[in-house]
């Protein structure tokens, strides 16, 4: 293959990563923005979403689309419920003290991961995609006598991958509408701006926190259900989404939703492209160092306006 089609293929793969990453990172960003809690267990909620999707798909049986559709609803609900319960039993009792909640969510990370290992086991298991027609993509080349269209070998995507991008965009629009256009979104933003004042105006801040924590975890789970037909469910799969979401949230500006989405697209695309042309380890080294330096020299993020 020439460099052009190769680049297009890398971009398409990167766009799938970016779509899923945007959902996961917005969940993390929401939790940080409203609650000022750094949730280290976020990657495990992602993993839990994928694992539950496998359980549901197994239990439903029949046509793959049936199981997948059920998983799409059930997995985020269960994970969101679990997260809200964890918030009410653990984080609330720590008074949301930043450092102690981080230590507690590290504990939560190990609990979720190891319980999954004990019940689900160490195997990686696939979930069948509801649909997945292969779509070949044409490319133009300059041949004798002018330009002509041809179909390079290997340059293709599937209808499912395109659907993932569309679904992620739709959910992100939904989150934006929820935050900007509904009463519950107004309450969340009020809590984010001034917790004490919100409390004084009769907003049930503790219930809002539980809801936000559940919503953030639910978004991660949803992202995992979308990706699980492409990448298999495994009990250690939470580490990479966690690291990448952190990178995205910090580059995009802590707690800023539009910044997070822009950064997710940027990081997802460049991760796909860099990984194709260079070593993925080198790409990760550069990304982690970049995050550290951004936090040191520009704590409000590249797009944000407010310090951490």
């Amino acid at each position: 293959m020439e460099i052009g089609p190769y680049f297009l293929l890398a971009t398409l793969e990167g766009a799938v990563t970016a779509a899923v990453l945007a959902l996961t990172a917005v969940g993390l960003s929401l939790v940080f923005g409203v609650m000022r809690v750094v949730n280290i267990a976020h990657g495990e909620f992602f993993m839990l979403g994928a694992v539950i999707a496998w359980w549901v798909a197994q239990a439903v049986g029949g046509h793959p689309a049936l199981g997948f559709a059920a998983a799409l609803v059930i997995a985020p609900l269960i994970v969101g419920g679990l997260a809200a319960a964890a918030d009410m039993t653990i984080l609330k009792r720590l008074d949301y003290d930043p450092e102690r909640t981080i230590v507690a969510t590290i504990g939560l990370l190990y609990v979720i991961q190891q319980v999954t290992l004990m019940t689900y086991g160490p195997e990686a298991r696939p979930v069948e995609a509801p649909f997945g027609t292969r779509l070949a993509i044409p490319w133009i080349e300059h041949a004798e006598g002018g330009w002509r269209l041809y179909w390079p070998w290997g340059l293709s995507t599937t209808s499912y991958k395109l659907a993932v991008m569309a679904a992620a965009a739709a959910v992100l629009l939904g989150v934006w509408a929820l935050m900007a256009r509904t009463r519950i979104g107004l309450v969340m933003r009020a809590t984010q701006m001034d917790r004490g004042m919100a409390l004084a105006f009769g907003i049930p801040v503790e219930r809002v926190y539980a809801l936000v924590f559940g919503l953030g975890a639910g978004l991660a789970a949803l992202a995992a259900v979308l990706i699980v037909p492409i990448r298999q469910a495994h009990y250690l799969m939470g580490a990479d989404p966690l690291l990448l979401s952190f990178i995205v949230v910090i580059i995009g500006g802590l707690g800023s939703l539009p910044g997070t989405v822009v950064a997710a697209v940027l990081i997802g695309l460049s991760d796909g492209i860099i990984s194709v042309f260079f070593s993925p380890t080198l790409a990760k080294i550069i990304a982690t160092l970049l995050v550290a330096l951004v936090l040191v020299f520009r704590p409000q993020g590249l797009f944000g306006t407010r310090a951490a």
Binding site: R93, L94, R100, V103, A104, G107, Y110, I112
Partner: peptide, 9 residues
């Protein structure tokens, strides 16, 4: 994991 949560709590 359990020890970390229990200790902070």
């Amino acid at each position: 994991g359990v020890a970390l949560i229990a200790l902070t709590l």
